[in-house]
Simulated assay, not measured.
Amino acid sequence: MRKLLNTLYVTNPDSYLVKDGDNVVVRVDNTERFRIPVYNLEGIVCFGYMGASPKLMRLCSDNNIALSFLSPQGQFQARVSGRVRGNVLLRRTQYRMADSASDSLEVAKSFIIGKTVNCRTVLGRGIRDHGDTVDNMKVTTADRLLIEHMLKIEDCTTADSLRGIEGNCARFYFSALDELILKQKDDFYLRERNRRPPRDNMNAMLSFLYTLLAHDVESALETVGLDPYVGFFHTDRPGRASLALDMMEELRPFMADRLALNLINLNQVKAKDFLKKENGGVLMTDDGRKEILGAWQKRKQDEVTHPYLGEKISVGLIPYVQAMLMARHLRGDIDGYPPFFMN
């Protein structure tokens, strides 16, 4: 099993990354602030506009290290990709399956079943752990609607009908997720999912966590030799990592939504960690972003038993394992793609 290495998050917007031998060096105003051997890294995420030297980019490419650039507020800007790796036969199979409406639909169903089951698990845990404080009727009603729609997935005959079910399930889930915010209710709430820009603190945090997850999933797909830009559920669009977005669907409730709830309910993030702009958009402060990044890294170190493999793995390796299972399905080693179901 692959070893979980470190992801370097560079939060100072004035940072510039350079190569020194086999080391990644972070400089601010031409002064070295940090260095780390490249062999200890599996990814680098930079929040700022200064960038990195071409030699550093080449070092990351040669060592299969994902290098992404985000704005200081956490909006995705760009990703550096090196030479295409992986088995060309695997990618050709991926492209053929993506071009087949029926084959794509079967894989897409697995993603949405995984997402719906995991959404139900998040809501179920809320009732189990906090049944005396949440609106049980509201949560159980959302859960019932999720079940009803999930039972319709297998009978879907078109991608559009599946997208309709997924959209409805998302609305049911997010309407009930607000009930699981137990603390700081005046500052954190979820009336609806909004983005570009997010218009409340909760949506701003979810968008940030989804961006971090997207980085990890895209990197995992590239590692096993798949093309993250050719998916089965999200339509192809220039610059859109459709397969990464597909695979994120089943992972969001477990890796991002639950973490956001914990950060709020444990008072690890607060209203002071967010700023509202004149246009109504909400941004995170530097301190808030660092708190969330620290919690994200810590969460990735936790261990879970993978439901399909039956082995204990780090949470941070879940995207890699799912990418590996997708590759195995495309090769014909397993009959279908097994989504990740959280415990």
Rank of each mutant, 00 (worst) to 15 (best):
R252Y: 15
A66Q: 05
L317V: 03
G225F: 08
D335M: 02
A204H: 04
K115Y: 06
R120W: 05
L5F: 11
N168F: 09
I153G: 01
E106T: 03
L206D: 00
I65W: 02
T7N: 06
D216T: 08
E311D: 13
E278V: 06
S102N: 08
K109S: 01
R240M: 09
S104W: 04
P72V: 02
A327E: 01
V10P: 04
L67S: 02
A256Y: 05
T305Y: 09
T31P: 00
I113A: 05
D287L: 04
M57Q: 11
R83M: 13
G131N: 11
G114F: 05
P37H: 13
K185M: 06
L245Q: 10
A204D: 05
V107W: 10
L206H: 05
V107S: 10
T305G: 05
R79Y: 12
L162E: 08
L212S: 09
Y9F: 15
L4C: 08
H215L: 07
P338I: 02
M342Y: 10
L177Q: 08
S100T: 13
D216R: 13
L105R: 00
S207H: 10
R328A: 15
Q184T: 13
E148A: 12
Q322N: 15
Y229V: 02
A220V: 03
L123C: 03
R96S: 12
V282F: 00
L67I: 04
R33H: 14
A108L: 07
A159P: 00
M284G: 13
N23A: 07
K19Q: 14
G86F: 10
I318A: 12
Y49D: 10
E154F: 04
R328F: 08
F233Q: 08
P13N: 14
R33T: 15
S175G: 07
R328K: 15
T133N: 09
D257L: 08
N267G: 10
L89F: 15
L67H: 02
F232D: 01
G43T: 09
A52T: 08
P72W: 05
